[in-house]
């Protein structure tokens, strides 16, 4: 891990516009990614973690969704959000690759796996068919697909779930990107295969210096894989910092709740802890801190003012008026 950030997301905001109204879906999300770093973005469904990554690739799924502010700086000083369409096709795939939760639907069903990878190689590099095919076999071998010569001619439906995910990683890696965005790549896989894929991602980071943004709702996966964690709630970043710091000493009450929700983390009570209430819907966001209606420590200040994201310790930031453990430490 070197110190120069390879990707800097600054104050990214996305709004949904429809029927004359505008709802902010993503509200001022900022984070940085260094070379060889694995950043986990954690949050429950609808917290905006996938949307954040779609937005920074300018891949928003509907024309009603619009980036309303912020910037996404690449290593070379360009802002992804202000690139022309032509420059964008150079950045997508080449700089930033992406893999998804459901490889069965994200791979072309009527093109063989090998051809999809070879196409991806040839698209960004002017090399011949044969050379691309050889490189493709190489990549298949790297992502751990056995017997690539014969598997390359197979189609998506002929692969198992784990093999499909490996194939999708191969397609994304074919252009040799610096950054890989992994949108819940292991959620649809069983635990054994999940562990294999996580090991593969780690190995790719170690061998290629790949930086990875790993979107998940599973803190267990974050614990196994990530160097840093960003916790999102209702479209905002509520905690951001080094993985061990955040998991072992969560400052935000939401993160603390999430950690407590992990089965076995409390040890032996036999009941799984839950956070009371439901996350708010985008059209009906509570004022102030968006977590305050569900928070045990909330007071009048939390309902009135949005807490800024500020550093509580070295490399650990939290958006809470009453961070967990801070007062206790101050008293002690």
């Amino acid at each position: 891990m070197t110190d120069a950030p390879i990707l800097t997301v600054n104050n990214l905001s996305v709004a949904y516009e429809g029927g004359g109204t505008s709802h902010t879906i993503i509200d001022g999300v900022s984070f940085t990614l260094r070379r060889g770093e694995i950043l986990g973005i954690v949050g429950e469904s609808g917290s905006g973690k996938s949307m954040t990554c779609r937005a920074l690739m300018r891949l928003l799924p509907s024309s009603r969704l619009r980036v309303t502010g912020g910037s996404v700086w690449l290593e070379d000083g360009r802002d992804v959000l202000s690139l022309s369409q032509g420059e964008l096709t150079q950045v997508r795939g080449r700089r930033i690759g992406m893999i998804f939760q459901n490889p069965a639907s994200h791979l072309d069903p009527v093109m063989s796996i090998g051809r999809q990878i070879a196409e991806s190689i040839r698209h960004h590099r002017k090399i011949g068919r044969k050379e691309a095919w050889a490189r493709m076999l190489d990549i298949l071998r790297q992502v751990g697909i056995p017997d690539p010569e014969s598997r390359a001619n197979a189609y998506t439906h002929e692969f198992s779930g784990g093999m499909r995910q490996r194939a999708m990683i191969a397609v994304a890696l074919a252009c040799d990107p610096d950054i890989l965005i992994a949108d819940e790549p292991t959620t649809a896989l069983d635990v054994t295969v999940q562990a294999q894929i996580l090991r593969l991602l780690q190995q790719l980071r170690d061998e290629r210096g790949l930086s990875i943004i790993f979107i998940t709702h599973d803190l267990g996966v974050v614990y196994q894989l990530c160097d840093t964690v960003a916790v999102m709630y209702a479209g905002r970043l509520c905690e951001y910092g080094a993985m061990h710091e955040v998991i072992h000493r969560p400052r935000h009450h939401y993160t603390a709740g999430l950690v407590a929700c992990q089965p076995g983390s409390e040890g032996g009570t036999g009941r799984v802890h839950t956070i009371p209430g439901q996350p708010p819907s985008p059209g009906d966001m509570p004022p102030g801190c968006r977590f305050h209606p569900r928070c045990g420590a909330a007071d009048a200040l939390c309902a009135a003012r949005q807490p800024p994201l500020r550093e509580t310790h070295e490399g650990h930031a939290c958006a809470c008026h009453h961070p967990v453990g801070i007062e206790a430490e101050a008293e002690a």
Partner: peptide, 14 residues
């Protein structure tokens, strides 16, 4: 709007 078309766009295809 299918997933694989979006994945193809994410690879920088025109």
């Amino acid at each position: 709007n299918s997933d694989f078309a979006m994945a193809a766009v994410s690879l920088g295809y025109s």
